[in-house]
Design a protein around this nucleic acid. Structure first.
Lengths: 361, 361
DNA sequence: CTGAAAGCGCTTACAG
DNA sequence: CTGAAAGCGCTTACAG
C-alpha cells in the first residue's frame, strides 16, 4: 500500500489487530488548518501557548476532517489515561460486584480506565495476562480474592510483583492477607479471622458449646482464615475442638445442604452451625428444612458475606458483613498513589438476625 | 533529558500518565544481540523468517536486559490484542456479574482485553467515556442494560454508534431492545415482555383476576417492557386493567415493601402481585409478613430476574430467569465479528416455586 | 534469513 | 505564539 495515498489508508486493516479506519491524522489536520503539526499538537495536548484564532482554525479543521486523536500514539509518549487491571478468579457474585464497584468509583473519578479479567483459577492464563498487561504498560494491577496458601503461589505472586515493578506498576492484593515473606507487596483485606471468631463468640455467649463448622477445605486464604477464626473463639473459651463437628464442603448451596444434612444425620449433637459463606448457610437452611429441624430453636445458623436477600430468609440469617466496596476503594487509592502503600485491614461487621438463639435445653 | 543516555531514560516519568521505567527498547536488545532492530522485531512479532540461532541470541539479549515489548507502540501499528469496552450504569447485582462473566468468557478465550466502566447514569460521563475509547481505538463497545426510552437517548446512542464506527468499532446494545429507527445498530436482548406476560398468564391460569403490578415508572426500556408484558396477558384474557392495581415503586427491597404495603392497605382486592424485579418481590414478602398476609394462600407473588437465594425464601419465589450470561456471550461474539451483526432475542424462562397458588375463594 | 530506510501518529525541547 | 527537527518504540515492504 502507498502510505501517502489517503484512499489507501482508508482501507480497514485485516481481521487481526485493532481496526484502522480513522486515518486522518494530526498532519492532515495541521495541513488543512495551515499550521505545523507541532502547533496542532499543542491544541489537542493542552491548549497552552496557542493563539486563540489558530486554535479555532485547528479545531475547525479537525471537526471537518473527523479527526480523532490517536490515544495509542499519545500513550506511547507517556500521556493519556492510566489503566488499572482487576484480576479475579471468577466474575461471580456480590463480592466481585461490590469490590469492582469500589475500584471503579475511584478510577472513573480520576479519569482512568479499568481492565477486568478472570483467570478461572488457571495460573498459566494468569501469567499470560500479567505479561500482556506489562506490555500494555498498565498502571497498576489488583489481584483480587482468596488465593492458594502454598509456597508455589507465593513465588508466583512475588514474580508478578517484580515483573510489574519493572514497568512501574504496583501489584495490590485485595481481599486476602499480605503475602508471606513479601511485606513490600501492598494488600487490602478485611479481618476475616476476627470477623468469624466474633460470630462464634456470639453463639458461645448465647450458651452454645456444640458448635459445628462447615466450609471449604484448607489451602486457600479465605477458607483458612475463617476456619482459624472459628478455632480462635473456641480456644478462647476453653471449648475443645471436635473433629466430628467440622465438615468440609464446596461453596455451592447444594454442597452446603449436603454437608449440613450429613452433620444433622450424624447426631454429633451440634446446636449451632457456623458456615464459611452465606452460600453454604443457605444450604444449611435447606438441610434443616429437609430434616425438619427448626431454625433457630433446634439449630442456630451463622453465615459470612451478607449477600443480598439473606436478611429475608426465614428466619433472617445472622452473618458477617465484609466491607467489600471499601476494600475496592482503598486498593484503588493505593494503586493510584493517593494512599501510601502498605497493608490495610478493614473491619467486618456482625449482622444479628433471627437465625441464632440460645440452645434448647 | 538526553534521550541517548540510558541512565537518563531510566528515570520515571512525572506523576501524570503511564510510568516509563522499562526503558530498554528493541534497539537496545538488537544492539546487544548484534542484529538489526528489524530482525529483533521479527523475533518478537511472529518469529517467522529468523534463523534459529539468531532468534536464540535475541531472546537471550532480551532476557538479560529485562526487555518488555512495548505493546502501545505495537498497537499503534495495528498489532496486539483488541480491547472491548463494557459500559453499564452501575456495577450492581447478579445481572451485571452474569453478563460481565459471559462477555469475559469470550474475550479471554480470544486473548482480548475487557474494559469496564460505570456511568452512574450520567450522560456527560458516558460521552466522555466514548470519546476516550475512540481515542484508544477500542475494538468494540457494549452498552449494557436498560436505558431511557426518550428521543434524547436515541439520538445520543446513534451518535455514539456513528462516532465509534469512524474508528472501526461496532456498538452493541445488551439487555435492551434495538434502538428505534436504527436497525443497523446491533442488539442482544432477552424477551422481557413475553417473559413477563407468561408469568402473568400462569397466575391467570391459576384463577387470579385481581392481579397487581409493582414496578419502576415508565421511561426506561426494562420498566416499559415488563409493564407492557403484564398488560398483554391481561388483555389477552379480557381482564380489564385496573389503575388501582398498578403501583409505582423504586427498585430497592424497601421501596417494594412500601409499595406493596400500601397496596395491601388499600383493600384493592389483589390476590396476586407481579413484581418488576426480584428486589421488589423480596419487598413484597416483607410487606406481606408485616401485614400478616400469608403467601401464597392470601397473596401470590411473582418476581423477575431469578437472583440467587430467592429460591430459598419461604416460600420459594416464582420468577422469570433471564439468560444474562448468554446475552453477554452473544454480544461479545457479535463484537468480535464471530457472529453476524443484527438483533438477537433470547428466551427467558419461568421458574415455578411456592409463591403462587390459586386465589382463596 | 537479514538490514537500511521509511513509516505509524504524536510530542517536545529548541530556537525564534 | 509558532515551526523544523528529533524523538518515542515498533513494524514492514524492499532489496539483497
Amino acid at each position: 500500500m502507498d502510505p501517502i495515498d489517503p484512499a489507501a489508508r482508508q482501507r480497514r486493516a485485516g481481521s487481526r489487530g485493532p481496526a484502522r479506519v480513522a486515518s486522518v491524522n494530526l498532519r492532515d489536520v495541521a495541513a488543512h488548518a495551515g499550521v505545523s503539526p507541532a502547533t496542532a499538537s499543542r491544541v489537542f495536548a493542552g491548549g497552552v501557548n496557542v493563539h486563540e484564532r489558530t486554535r479555532a482554525r485547528v479545531l475547525a479543521a479537525a471537526e471537518e476532517l473527523g479527526y480523532v486523536v490517536n490515544g495509542l500514539a499519545r500513550a506511547m509518549t507517556g500521556r493519556g489515561p492510566h489503566t488499572m487491571a482487576f484480576i479475579v478468579r471468577a466474575m461471580i457474585g456480590p463480592t466481585f460486584a461490590s469490590l469492582a464497584a469500589g475500584v471503579e468509583s475511584v478510577t472513573s473519578r480520576e479519569g482512568h480506565l479499568l481492565l477486568m479479567s478472570a483467570t478461572g483459577g488457571d495460573s498459566e492464563r494468569e501469567a499470560e495476562l500479567i505479561a500482556t498487561l506489562r506490555e500494555l504498560r498498565v498502571g497498576a494491577v489488583l489481584l483480587v480474592g482468596s488465593t492458594e496458601t502454598d509456597e508455589r503461589f507465593v513465588r508466583r505472586a512475588a514474580g508478578y510483583a517484580k515483573d510489574l515493578a519493572d514497568v512501574g506498576a504496583p501489584l495490590i492484593l485485595c481481599g486476602r492477607p499480605p503475602l508471606a515473606g513479601h511485606p513490600d507487596i501492598a494488600s487490602v483485606d478485611y479481618d476475616q479471622r476476627t470477623g468469624m471468631s466474633e460470630a462464634v463468640e456470639e453463639l458461645i455467649g448465647l450458651g452454645h458449646r456444640r458448635i459445628a463448622y462447615v466450609g471449604e477445605p484448607r489451602g486457600m486464604t479465605t477458607s483458612e482464615l475463617r476456619l482459624d477464626g472459628y478455632g480462635d473463639a473456641l480456644a478462647r473459651h476453653g471449648i475443645p475442638s471436635d473433629p466430628s463437628l467440622i465438615r468440609v464442603s464446596g461453596n455451592s448451596e447444594e454442597d452446603g445442604a449436603r454437608a449440613v444434612g450429613e452433620l444433622l444425620a450424624s447426631h454429633a449433637g451440634a446446636t449451632a452451625v457456623v458456615c464459611m459463606t452465606d452460600n453454604i448457610a443457605v444450604g444449611a437452611y435447606r438441610a434443616a428444612r429437609r430434616a425438619g429441624t427448626r431454625i433457630p430453636d433446634e439449630l442456630s445458623i451463622v453465615g459470612f458475606d451478607d449477600v443480598p436477600i439473606v436478611s429475608d430468609l426465614t428466619p433472617g440469617l445472622t452473618t458477617v458483613r465484609p466491607p467489600f466496596f471499601d476494600v475496592g476503594v482503598r486498593a484503588a487509592e493505593i494503586a493510584l498513589g493517593h494512599s501510601p502503600s502498605g497493608h490495610v485491614l478493614l473491619e467486618p461487621h456482625l449482622v444479628r438476625r433471627g437465625s441464632i438463639a440460645p440452645p434448647s435445653p
